[in-house]
Design a protein around this nucleic acid. Structure first.
Lengths: 141, 141
DNA sequence: GGTTGACCTTACCATTATGGGAAGGTCCAT
DNA sequence: ATGGACCTTCCCATAATGGTAAGGTCAACC
């Protein structure tokens, strides 16, 4: 049996987060020693690692909870898991696209700016709304 | 002179956010009518639109403040603006790359999963740490 | 003049997931 | 017994935005 510090080291989840996950019900309450210390065994560490990896794949905590439930459900359909994962892929794609649009718009402006000691700056002109050098491809949010 | 609702409509910044920007010092305090209503003129609306567009390009509020300061500085060097914009491009690139890595790892797992009624699922196996089907290219955060 | 509805004001709470710190208790080795 | 490394809970902060509630104001209309 380990205490929270050891479980943290073994799982890659900070002690702070372990307590938080417990508090929010993502993971079941840990056992306690007589003096109140939380105790963790290999099984609990595995759960924590599961959570860690799901978070590393960008799943929000809510979806991690769904994944955990499926993990614990011996009679799950792999299709259910796959759907969650596919939805997450799409969520990532949406955010990636958003940021790529921002980046493209910004790169255009950067490209137009001399970047010297003079004050004239198409970037500021664009932000100021003066459509002198005009907005490129993206305009709204 | 407009009240905050009109300034919001004209700038695309919610009234809530206008007050927040004022409170945090991003924009100067608006004028007030005798009865305490905030008032905005065309100049103030232009500032709000500036903030809006900078936010649309992904600049954090702190950088928006820097951009506003340069905008107001008649003797700025366009190089300073360009540097801010280039840094923002790099920040976007970093976040995009992070999410692309997640997406690639997740797509690999999705690809391995049959997605039928059976419970066997390589996605859960991977999250569970059982390196049976192994982690693909990405492992850490 | 009074009423009504649309607007404004401030103040507080929630979000997402994480870290930081304080005040105090515990464990173990010397 | 003492000290250091650990644990506990509780509170605060983050970034940027939305929501709500309680109350004041404005303008129009009857």
């Amino acid at each position: 049996m380990m205490n929270i510090g050891e479980a943290s080291a073994a799982s890659g989840v900070s002690a702070k987060m372990i307590r938080y996950y417990e508090e929010t019900g993502l993971i079941p309450p840990a056992g306690r020693t007589a003096s109140g210390y939380r105790t963790y065994g290999p099984k609990e560490v595995q759960i924590l690692r599961f959570v860690r990896r799901a978070r590393d794949l960008g799943f929000p905590m809510e979806k991690v909870a769904d994944l955990l439930a499926l993990w614990n459900d011996r009679s799950r359909a792999s299709a259910d898991v796959k759907h969650l994962a596919e939805a997450q892929v799409q969520a990532l794609e949406a955010r990636i696209r958003e940021m790529q649009d921002m980046k493209a718009a910004l790169e255009h402006l950067v490209h137009c700016c001399a970047g010297d000691r003079r004050p004239d700056c198409p970037i500021l002109d664009d932000l100021g709304g003066t459509p002198a050098f005009a907005a490129p491809v993206t305009t709204g949010r």
